[in-house]
């Protein structure tokens, strides 16, 4: 009886238990993104106008004065944190020629909304570009019960696309 009771409780809390976790380390993401030969990291220092644009994209001020990234050819890789409801979600983004190539949830720390880690959600971002108003040029389907996490991933994707435009690697878009 006790065993069944415990099993029942475990099943009830399974959703939140399984949502949290490290799915890929940032290092593994960067290694994989550049086929095991990642370039040396670079940084973008955020001027006041840049910080204002980032704040417009995120809906709140960006926490930090510089952003680290990896770039080669016409591709850049970003490891960014954005808060879903209370805790930061670590998201890896690769941009190629101004389009999203990959969006991966690296660490999810909240108890709800972990469904954003599934490829069925993140694959929607592939090939999305930034419009002039800094929105994505394609709609992203939400996930019921994960609104804030979905929003955090979308904002991060927009942020990475905008930051890519500020790097020298955006000049290689024709490649």
């Amino acid at each position: 009886m006790k065993r069944w009771f415990t099993l029942g409780l475990l099943l009830l809390s399974a959703t939140s238990l399984f949502a949290k976790g490290v799915y890929q380390t940032p290092e593994a993401f960067i290694q994989e993104g550049f086929q095991g030969e990642p370039p040396a990291p670079k940084v973008i220092w955020l001027s006041q106008p840049l910080k204002e644009t980032l704040a417009n994209i995120l809906g709140h001020s960006y926490r930090g004065l510089r952003v680290r990234y990896w770039g080669k050819g016409n591709r850049t890789a970003w490891v960014l944190n954005e808060i879903g409801k209370e805790k930061p979600i670590t998201i890896g983004v690769i941009v190629r020629a101004g389009q999203l190539e990959q969006v991966t949830i690296l660490t999810f720390r909240e108890s709800r909304g972990g469904e954003v880690r599934y490829p069925s959600f993140t694959d929607q971002f592939i090939n999305a570009k930034l419009k002039n108003d800094h929105d994505l040029d394609k709609p992203i389907d939400g996930i019921s019960g994960a609104t804030l996490s979905v929003r955090a991933v979308e904002k991060t994707a927009q942020l990475a696309l905008f930051l890519h435009q500020q790097t020298p690697f955006s000049n290689d878009e024709a490649q």
Binding site: P26, P41, G64, L65, V67, R68, N81
Partner: peptide, 15 residues
């Protein structure tokens, strides 16, 4: 952080 407590950057050690 700068000396007034403003975050400059957070970097994961694994990187």
């Amino acid at each position: 952080f700068n000396n007034s407590g403003q975050l400059i950057e957070q970097i994961d050690w694994s990187l």
